[in-house]
């Protein structure tokens, strides 16, 4: 389980973030004492750090700058400051992403998993029930037979695979698609899912995607 360290001085937000991350299969750690944050960051053993820009007595930008000199754990900055200048500064100081409050929780989770994937040292060969998943070529391969997925189908399949065994809502799928410039509507999403189902079952994975009424889909 990936560990994510939350450095946020607003208690309500920090708590909700911890719940959100917990629900999404991450282990959330929190910093409550804002002395020696730098050391706590290094000793936490976290895989990713979510950091607020404005902390009591500290400046997130300089903190990242200092932290980067000795450590390369990915850092995502969270901020209510919506100015490009802040973003440019943060990124130049070594932050991996920058998200402004209030954030769409689904987007936040997508960004977290994108940063984790990008910074993972070994790119995992992803498989699902003996089916090899290649995101680069957009294909699913099992033995000699293979299926080509469209961009939309791949986005959907990846999100389901990232959360295998958990419910992924239509809303989450929609957000992920829109975030990738695919402005599809409800019908198109249903069509994409049924096509994806057909392609999976032709590779021998029948009933791979379960529908949970009024909740979403589960990849079993």
């Amino acid at each position: 389980m990936k560990k994510i360290l939350i450095i946020e001085d607003d208690n309500a937000i920090a708590e909700e973030l911890a719940v959100l991350l917990g629900n999404s299969g991450y282990e959330a750690l929190r910093i409550t004492d804002f002395n020696k944050v730098q050391e706590q960051m290094k000793n936490s053993g976290a895989d990713l750090i979510l950091m607020d820009i404005t902390l009591p007595g500290l400046n997130g930008e300089t903190l990242v700058h200092e932290f980067r000199k000795s450590c390369d754990t990915p850092v995502i900055m969270l901020t209510s400051r919506t100015s490009e200048i802040d973003e440019v500064l943060c990124m130049s100081y070594g932050a991996d992403d920058y998200i402004t409050k209030p954030y769409n929780p689904t987007i936040l989770l997508l960004r977290i998993s994108a940063v984790l994937k990008r910074t993972a040292k070994v790119t995992q060969q992803r498989t699902y029930r003996d089916i090899e998943v290649s995101t680069v070529s957009g294909t699913l391969t099992k033995g000699r037979s293979s299926e080509v997925l469209t961009k939309n189908e791949m986005i959907i399949f990846q999100l389901l695979l990232d959360h295998q065994g958990e419910i992924v809502t239509r809303d989450d799928l929609m957000t992920a698609l829109w975030d990738n410039d695919e402005f599809v509507n409800d019908n198109a999403l249903s069509v994409n899912i049924s096509r994806l189902r057909n392609k999976l079952s032709s590779l021998g994975a029948d009933d791979a995607i379960e529908t949970r009424k009024k909740q979403g889909y589960v990849l079993t």
Partner: peptide, 27 residues
């Protein structure tokens, strides 16, 4: 503006965590 965004952000997270999307469009 930066201050008022904090409670809005926590409310948005609460809506999502509680699975209640009724309030999010108002937010």
């Amino acid at each position: 503006v930066h201050e008022v965004k904090l409670p809005v952000a926590s409310l948005q997270l609460m809506c999502h965590n509680d699975g209640n999307s009724r309030y999010s469009s108002q937010l």
